[in-house]
Design a protein around this nucleic acid. Sequence first.
DNA 1: CTGAAAGCGCTTACAG
DNA 2: CTGAAAGCGCTTACAG
Lengths: 344, 344
Amino acid sequence: MRSKKSRATSVDIAHRAGVSQATVSRVLRGSPLVNPETRQRVLDAVRELNYKVDHRASSLRTQRSGTLALLLFEDPTPDESHINPFFLSMLGSITRACAKHGHDLLVSFQQLSDDWHADYEDSMKADGLILLGYGDYVTYHSKLEQLVGQGTHFVRWGAVQEGQPGVSIGCDNFKGGQLVGEHLIERGRKKVAFLGNASAHSPEFFERYRGCDAALQRAGGGMQADLQVDAESEEKAGYAAAVSLLERGRPFDAVFAASDLIAVGAMRALTEHGRHVPWDVAVVGFDDIPMARFANPPLTTVAQDTVRAGELLVETLLRQVRGEATEAVMLPPELVVRRSSGAV
Amino acid sequence: MRSKKSRATSVDIAHRAGVSQATVSRVLRGSPLVNPETRQRVLDAVRELNYKVDHRASSLRTQRSGTLALLLFEDPTPDESHINPFFLSMLGSITRACAKHGHDLLVSFQQLSDDWHADYEDSMKADGLILLGYGDYVTYHSKLEQLVGQGTHFVRWGAVQEGQPGVSIGCDNFKGGQLVGEHLIERGRKKVAFLGNASAHSPEFFERYRGCDAALQRAGGGMQADLQVDAESEEKAGYAAAVSLLERGRPFDAVFAASDLIAVGAMRALTEHGRHVPWDVAVVGFDDIPMARFANPPLTTVAQDTVRAGELLVETLLRQVRGEATEAVMLPPELVVRRSSGAV
DNA sequence: CTGAAAGCGCTTACAG
DNA sequence: CTGAAAGCGCTTACAG
C-alpha cells in the first residue's frame, strides 16, 4: 500500500508501455510468446513504476499460492515458556528450504486441541502443510485421517511407522537408541535408566527406548521397567523425573534421556543429589540442541540432521502438491560423544 | 484443494441455502443486515459443505491480507549455522502475538544484501513488515529510508535512536550496560574488557558499551579502548575475541560480552587459557538466552523481555496499518546474576 | 507475437 | 433484510 498515489497495477504498466495488459502479464510470467523489444518496453515500465505483481490476484487466478504453512504443535506448555530448541532449529531449516524453492512460509503455533485440521489449506492460504511437534500420537491420529480424507496436502515430522495417515519424515529413532545402547555398553554401563514417555502415545521416544533395549539385549542385558520414568521434553520434567528415579532407590549407572532438554534437567538433579556425572552416572540425551555442547558436563547425545530434515520436508510436500508420488523417509542419526558419558 | 470434487465456494453455499451469494458473504463477514433465520440456513450449509472463505479472494477484494511478514536478517552466517537463539525466541513471541491478534505470520530469512525492501508488502502478501536482526546499521539505514519513502508499513526491532527512519522497538541497551557496570563495580572489578563491536555500525552493542562506561565513570574509572575487541554475535567470534584480548597482555578482571553467545565463547577461551571464571575474570553477557543458565559457570547476563517485545512489535505494526499514530518504545532490561560474576 | 474477453472467489455500494 | 452487479488484479485459452 502506498501512502499517496495508489500502487501501480498491470494496467498502468500496459498503458505506459503501450501494450495490452495481457502482454504485461506474459512478460512477467516469462512467457516466450513475446517479442523481445516489447518485453523490454514492458520491463522498463515495470522498473519505472516499481511495479510488483499482486500475489493475491495471481494466486487466485492460478489456484497456487506459492506458500507453505508450518504448524508447530506444543501441547504441554501453553504460553510463556520457550519453544523446544530442537523445533526452533527445524523451523530455521524449513524456512531456508522454502526460500530455496521459491516458496513463502506461514508459521503458526497450534495447540493440539485446536481445530487446526481445517485451517490454512482450507482458506487457500497455503498449498500444503508441514506438521511439526511432539504430541500425543493417539489424539493426533484421527485428525491426520481427517486431513487425508479432505485431500489436504501435508507432511509430518515424527515417527515413521506403518499404517499411519499421510507421509512422514523422521529420524530413525530406533537406530538412535541402538547407538546409545551400544555406546553405554562399551563404556561398561549395564543398568540404564530411561527418562521419557515410553509408550505408543510418544512413538518417537518409545522407539529410542526400544533401540537402546535391543542393544543391551544383544549384550545380555536389557532395559528395566523400574528404571523408566515418564517425562515430557522439558528441562523441568527431566529434573523431576531424575528426582523420582533417585527416590525409587534402584541402582543405575547410566541415564538415557529421551531428549536433551530432559537430559539437562536430569544432570542438574543428579548433581544436586550428590551423583557425579559421568563417574557415578553416564548421561546421554537426544537431538543435539545447541545447549548440549555447553551443558555441564558437555552432553553426549544423538544428533538429528535438521538441515536435511527441513529440505526433505519441503521437497516432499512440494512434490505432493504437484501430484507426484512421495514416500516416508527415515534420516540416519549420529552419536555425538562428549564428557557426560566419559569413561569410568 | 480437494482431491475429488473441487472445493465449495460461496456460490455453492448460496445455492444450498437458497439465498444469493451476496447474502452468504454477509453472513460470513458477520454483517448485522441478515435475518436470523437466513443466517442459520447459511451457517448450516457452510457446515455441511465444510466451506471456508477463500482468503485470497477476500483479501484481494478488501485490500487487507490479515498477514504480517517477519524478515529476519542474518548477515555473517550465510547458511548452515544456527540462528541466534535470541531471535528465535523473538520469533516465538511474535508468532504468538500475531495469533492473538488474529493475523498470520509469514517468516523469511534475509541476507542484508538482498533486495528485501521491495518484496513482501509490495506483492501484497502482507499488510506490514517486522524487521529483526543485527546488521550493519549504516548499510541498513538507506534501505529503511526507501521503505519509508514507499509508504511501507513496518516496525523494527533494534536500537531506538534519533533521526531513524520508521518506528523502532528495542531494549534500553544503555540502561542494560549501566546495570552491568554497576554490578561489576559492586563486585570489586575495575578493569572491564568489552567483547563486541563498539561503533555506530552496531548501535545496540555500542549503547551497551556506553552504558557500562557511564557506570564505571561514576565510580571514577571507565572503559579502556585497549580492552575492547570486535566480535559478531557468535560463540566462535567470542572465543576468538577473548583469545586476542589475552594476547594483548593488558590486565583485566572482568569481561562484558555484548551478547550471551559471545560470552559463552569467551568463557571457553578464558578457561582454556588458565583463567578462572569468576575468580580471575568475571564474565557478563547480554540477552539471557536459554543457554545462559546452563553455561559453565552459569552466566550472569541482562535479560530482555522477548514476550513483551513480540507483543509490542505486533501491536505497533497493526496500529500503523490502521493508520493510527505509533511511537518508538524502549523496554527495560533486567540484570540476572549467576555464578560467572560471583564474588571474588 | 498480440489483444479482447472471460473468470478466479470474494465484498460492497446500490436499489429495492 | 435481500439480490443483481461491479470490481479487486491478475492469467490464459481463443482468435487473429
